[in-house]
Write a protein that binds this DNA or RNA. Structure first.
Length: 506
RNA sequence: GGUCCAUUCGUCUAGGGGUUAGGACGCAAGAUUUUCAUUCUUGAAACAGGGGUUCGAUUCCCCUAUGGACUACCA
């Protein structure tokens, strides 16, 4: 296996939106694959038809595209190990389950859901395992002829793994090192469900084998069921081909403790999903990072830093840098609480780092959404350059840059009206006239003229500078006033002075 | 309850038998900016506790505590 080409997979089940932690798992898979010139496959684990959600698979694909984490093999693009949807591979799992039964490592169980429920009620901490399996209705406890009869009559049944007693299963995890488990403590997990679909336990082993997966990354929540998987690899005779495991630390709630869930996002006011997700049944919308105004560069970056670090002071990484520097050895063992403030900082950093040209195509839709059409792209680039340092989210470009495209609809009147005087009205009227007559239109010259005029009128510069800003921008924010004036142009500046004067003196 | 896993500033983390325990986010103060940000400087802020081992433990070992995951015909 060590000389084999690296093959990794991300195997989500299409049950809803894609969680932050899911994207991080994708990212680590992707980084590892690319770094080793390996293959990244996307496999859809849709073996539970009860939980299948329309549109979820397409949504997951879209998320990966947005993040720029493209699979090399997937249900969409195919590949040498197609199909990549487990529901389409259904027929193949039974054979392996039967093989395990024949070998004595698994058995048929005929207990109905009701019977199981009853048993759980009767026996505290019931586990379907060595202690109780003889009390249940299965091919271990029932006489052979009765089992045959039940099978012949096609009585619904499942296939369960027969966990060995008094054995220790151990392996070396790429992240946590040596871990071991006592087989007595694991129950006889269902391998093949009554509907003929495999459970995760069987499917993940069979497909990882068939798809020649060399390294398997998954969340830490899978650690307790690892012994079942290990045993399956062994019983199926594939132990030599078993991938190396890496159980990733969990992403935790920012407050309190526990796994971060979409509920926490709603409660604390930040997204948990990569992109907006609308549940097709309830119509409920769960917000996403993309729509909130995150850049995929920043999203990848912040996810990578949740559990991994380069061992240096560097925190801002491009995807290429991550591919270069990522190492599984430097992934932390313990869970990390998600910090939305830091997440926003990463985004602000990326907005500052990207050029106005690179930002342009991402800002246009933001402005369009607000009803602003951009006819002059060069003008937009200048606007972006002027305001990008004060944007944290992409959506901030509307607030910070919208007034370059349309005059303010509302003014921060509290900032100007209480201190308004006739002298100021007079000043701005005169300013309009002198701007009209201006022979040049460049920031420093305009500023000098403005100051000279204020002095001449006996006004403090500060007393007219702020009102001037509010006239152009609408509020107390934005770049240097005369940079704005210079970009806005003569006609528009004068127009806005007139517009605002009406409001200020009303 | 049981099993497994984890534990350095509020948060993400670096470090590692002898260090002023480093960085980042956030927070506070100051400088720059006649707005708001950016930027810069400075500051407050941590080795869960107890035993060992050792000349010396935050670092190694054990125990305790705390937290988390899992304990479905879900993944």
């Amino acid at each position: 296996m060590s000389n084999q080409k690296v093959r990794v997979r991300f195997a989500p089940s299409p049950t809803g939106g894609l969680h932050l932690g899911g994207v991080r798992t994708v990212l680590f898979n992707y980084l590892f694959a690319k770094q080793h010139n390996g293959t990244f496959v996307l496999r859809i684990e849709d073996t539970d038809q009860n939980r299948y959600v329309e549109g979820a698979e397409a949504y997951i694909l879209d998320c990966l595209k947005w993040c720029g984490l493209f699979p090399d093999e997937s249900p969409e693009i195919g590949g040498p190990f197609a199909p990549y949807r487990q529901s389409e591979r259904k027929a193949l799992y039974r054979e392996y389950a039967e093989r395990l039964v024949a070998q004595g490592h698994a058995y048929y169980a005929f207990d109905t859901p009701d019977e199981l429920e009853q048993k759980r009620k009767d026996v505290p901490n019931f586990q379907y395992g060595h202690a109780y399996r003889n009390e249940m209705r299965n091919s271990l406890s029932l006489p052979e002829h009765e089992v045959d009869k039940l099978l012949d009559e096609k009585v619904p049944h499942v296939i369960r793994i027969k966990m060995p007693t008094d054995e220790t299963v151990s392996f070396t995890d790429m992240i946590r090192g040596f871990v071991s488990f006592d087989t007595n403590l694991s129950d006889d997990k269902v391998l093949l469900k009554a509907d003929g679909m495999p459970t995760y336990h069987l499917a993940v082993v069979v497909d990882d084998y068939l798809m020649q997966i060399t390294h398997a990354f998954r969340g830490e929540e899978w650690l307790p069921s690892a012994p079942v998987h290990l045993l399956l690899w062994e019983y199926l005779g594939w132990k030599e081909q078993m991938p190396q495991w890496a159980h990733l630390p969990l992403i935790l709630k920012p407050d309190g403790h526990g796994k971060l869930s979409k509920r926490d996002g709603a409660r604390l006011g930040f997204p948990v999903y990569a992109m907006n997700w609308t549940d097709p049944k309830t119509g409920e919308l769960t917000p996403g990072f993309r729509e909130l105004g995150f850049l995929p560069e920043a999203f990848n970056n912040l996810l990578a830093m949740l559990g991994w670090n380069a061992g240096t002071d560097q925190e801002v990484f491009s995807l290429d840098e991550l591919i270069q520097q990522f190492s599984i050895e430097r992934v932390n063992k313990s869970g990390a609480k998600f910090d939305f403030e830091k997440a926003k900082w990463f985004n602000a950093e990326w907005i500052k780092r990207l050029s106005a040209d690179e930002l342009k195509p991402r800002v246009v839709p933001i402005l369009n959404d607000k009803g602003i059409t951009v006819s002059d792209e060069d003008y937009l680039v200048k606007v972006i350059d002027l305001v990008k340092d004060r944007c944290t989210l992409l959506t901030d470009f509307y607030q910070q840059g919208g007034y370059f495209f349309e005059a303010p609809k509302e003014y921060d009147l509290n900032a100007v009206k209480p201190k308004w005087t006739d002298a100021k009205t007079e000043f701005f009227n005169t300013l309009s006239e002198s701007l009209q007559a201006a022979s040049q239109w460049e920031a420093t010259g305009l500023e000098a003229d403005f100051k000279a005029l204020a002095e001449q009128k006996g006004l403090k510069i500060g007393d007219v500078m702020l009102p001037f800003r509010v006239m152009l921008v609408g509020g107390k924010f934005g770049p240097h006033v005369f940079d704005i004036v210079a970009l806005l142009g003569k006609e528009e500046t004068i127009r806005r002075i007139g517009l605002a004067l009406k409001e200020f003196t009303a």
